[in-house]
Design a protein around this nucleic acid. Sequence first.
DNA 1: GAGTGGTCTAGACCACCAC
DNA 2: TGGTGGTCTAGACCACTCC
Lengths: 261, 261
Amino acid sequence: MLNLDQIDRDSDQSPYRQIASTLRDRILAGNEGYQQGDKIPSEAALIEHFGVARMTVRQAINELRGEGLIVSEHGRGVFVRLAPPVRRLASDRFARRHRDAGKAAFLAEADASGYKPEVDRIDVRRGPAPKAVAERLGLANEAEVVIRARRYLANGRPVETAVSYIPGELAAGTAIEQADTGPGGLYARLEETGHILDRFTEEVGARMPVAEERQSLGISPGTPVLTVLRTAYDTKGMAVEVCDTVKVAPAYLLQYDFPAR
Amino acid sequence: MLNLDQIDRDSDQSPYRQIASTLRDRILAGNEGYQQGDKIPSEAALIEHFGVARMTVRQAINELRGEGLIVSEHGRGVFVRLAPPVRRLASDRFARRHRDAGKAAFLAEADASGYKPEVDRIDVRRGPAPKAVAERLGLANEAEVVIRARRYLANGRPVETAVSYIPGELAAGTAIEQADTGPGGLYARLEETGHILDRFTEEVGARMPVAEERQSLGISPGTPVLTVLRTAYDTKGMAVEVCDTVKVAPAYLLQYDFPAR
DNA sequence: GAGTGGTCTAGACCACCAC
DNA sequence: TGGTGGTCTAGACCACTCC
């Protein structure tokens, strides 16, 4: 007894779509339906209930996977996806008051939102600036920059990867070239070089992740990513950093304020 | 002769993944591979070339569709996806100088970017405010608002749907309740009621579209959407409009500037 | 009508997981 | 060991597009 409607063979809609709709309705029904993390009926049970071939049931499940509603676990079952905790990023997240408290933006925000922050896979090296970065930094193509890559986790789950590019001359001999940038983070070190931060520009987009990103962010097919390319400018209007981030989309809500001017 | 590598049956990787990789490499190869809009080999040709069953080829194709690399057209073939023209939205896109020129934001921007703008499916009615909207407008739950829905097209392709909510009292008796809001658009009419716009807040996220959104935006599976919830405030700090937009992600790049404060 | 992708059937073997 | 999903085979009929 699955307590699901039967499909209508005379309908215009194909059986697999009807099955997908039936399951989708249950997932979206909230309290009366399947809950987050619930196991949905096995393929065998659905085949029996709807009286269709296995591929038909799998096609319905595929549909829902593509919508990001469910995740399959080999040998265990298919489960309603857990919504990750949402990180709400306001445009004052780089405000100086956070740096003054000795905290980098990610840590300050974790404090406020109450999740456990971690940063891992820190990799610092020097190399040529990619084209898009060189453009924004106002450097010659392939000019040498310090490249800082890292991954952010909230409550143990990867939520974002970030790669910062800092002009080589600017970073020379500072903690920017160390894995640990010290209290206040990268921006605090930048300001110590005399480049006081004045404003940021962020370019926001969204797309499907490539396989490598799916891997490093631990996300299943059907989950998009938000891309944010941030450029930091000092009070003289010079671009001092470009930061290229890839965020697990369902885990983020970005908030920006701007004047109507 | 397809000029594609054969699959390795002894490999760890399953045949369908190998086939997907082979095709993906070709698509991403740029000038030497399949170009945007090119037809990739038919299922029959791939079956013959790789010596596999049809479902195996279809699974490979499904994989690439999920990555947003290709689109299938029933009866015609499978094609490398065309990247839509990117609309780059800067945070001054609602600047008063555009309204002063008698143009709504979308039209002003089309002028600058050189695409043909259209607005269709305009629907204006009164109704209760959804919870998220009532919160942001500072209204009681289900308070009456004017609801303006419309769809935007660039060069004939749908790129965005938008639904504006304006407090019922504010819109009463103005062109805000007409399908055509007149020169300068909705914001110009709002200011005529004495509510001079001061600032906006935008909340940006990304997710997979539901079937209905896929339909109205004409997008294929595997394409995410950007969601932007904008709240407009007047000089007294009163929220005068909430606009809920859903944008075809690959068609957009949102740009925001904010101070380091 | 020929070629294309969309859907469905009815099996098979395998890898992973929990007991 | 039994149940789960992952992959593959070898067919079938259909709907759509183009000539």
